[in-house]
Amino acid sequence: MRSSGYKRFVWWLVASVAVMCVPFLTDNGFMLKILAKDVGTNALVVLGLALLFGYGGQVSLGHAAFIGIGAYTSALVTMRFELPWLAGVAAAALVSAAGGALLALPSLRLRGHYLAMATLGFGEIMHIVFREATPLTGGFDGLRGIPSVAIGGFVFKSPESIYWLVWGIVLVALLLAYNVVALRPGRAMRALHGSELGSQACGVDTVRVKVQVFVVSAALAGIAGSLYAHVARFISPEIFTLHRSVILLSMAVLGGTSSLAGPIVAAVGLSILKYVDSFVPGMPDAASTFLQDWELDIYGLTIIVVMLFAPGGIGGAFRSLRQRFRKKAAPDPEGEGVSAA
């Protein structure tokens, strides 16, 4: 256990260095900003969804609403009350987490897939709130002139600094998530991941664990929302739609249930699709237009293909590649419980 945790830490370190070096490889500020504002914030939300899906066995169709709550909260705290960004992001995480708890507590007490339905309804309700609560949210027009992220005296203005900030937060969140899952406090979560009935039989309060995971995922979305708001400096209701929630969920599913890095890779891959023309310089217009026009269909198709041929998602594919590479016939230890049937 300890050695595999150590190995994972080394991998995390290598990946982190690689991710943090990206700004040295390019001077395309537009691209770096997209990698931070859109790709990085998606990755942060998808990390939370992956915890929720992989360890809580739950799906959310409303996480765009938590991003929105975080974005508006943070914008209001910094604009109306003129508090620093750190206060904004803390408020964003807290308000989103509280919203998550309010939603998860009643729906998870019920047996069945009520949470998914509740999140769907919640997402739609919040979308309307963002649109109609004009005095707070600016209505359709949204909020403009949100201050840039600033910590102490330092203002994150350059694309590089923004990139490092966002991805630094994503990587730290990933490391924290690994630790929660791997160490003692996360054993109830791992038990739930292994077998729900088994963990109930051990006296694990599965409802509580699920609520906790949901609250954490909502808080991560809130933080992502704050980052987005202060990097884009403009938010409007159309950014926080059901469409966005579904795309985020599909990234988590594509990433796989047995891994946390997998969903982040999926989030990066699928988020880039929309901006493919600026990332692949030599790409003919026709090809990039095709990819952009068919973006949603490509998501859908990818998920179908993954479900059919690699149900473990990207994480699962990594795992089996590694096993094949080692030629070790160890059984997949992440299968749903160990059962005789």
């Binding site: 791992r190 038990a191 077998s195 009935l197 039989a201 419980g337 059962s339 005789a340």
Partner: peptide, 14 residues
């Protein structure tokens, strides 16, 4: 204490 049908152990754990 329930010993569930199909054991429902935590397979990846020791």
């Amino acid at each position: 204490a329930l010993v569930p049908e199909g054991r429902r152990l935590f397979g990846s754990m020791s």
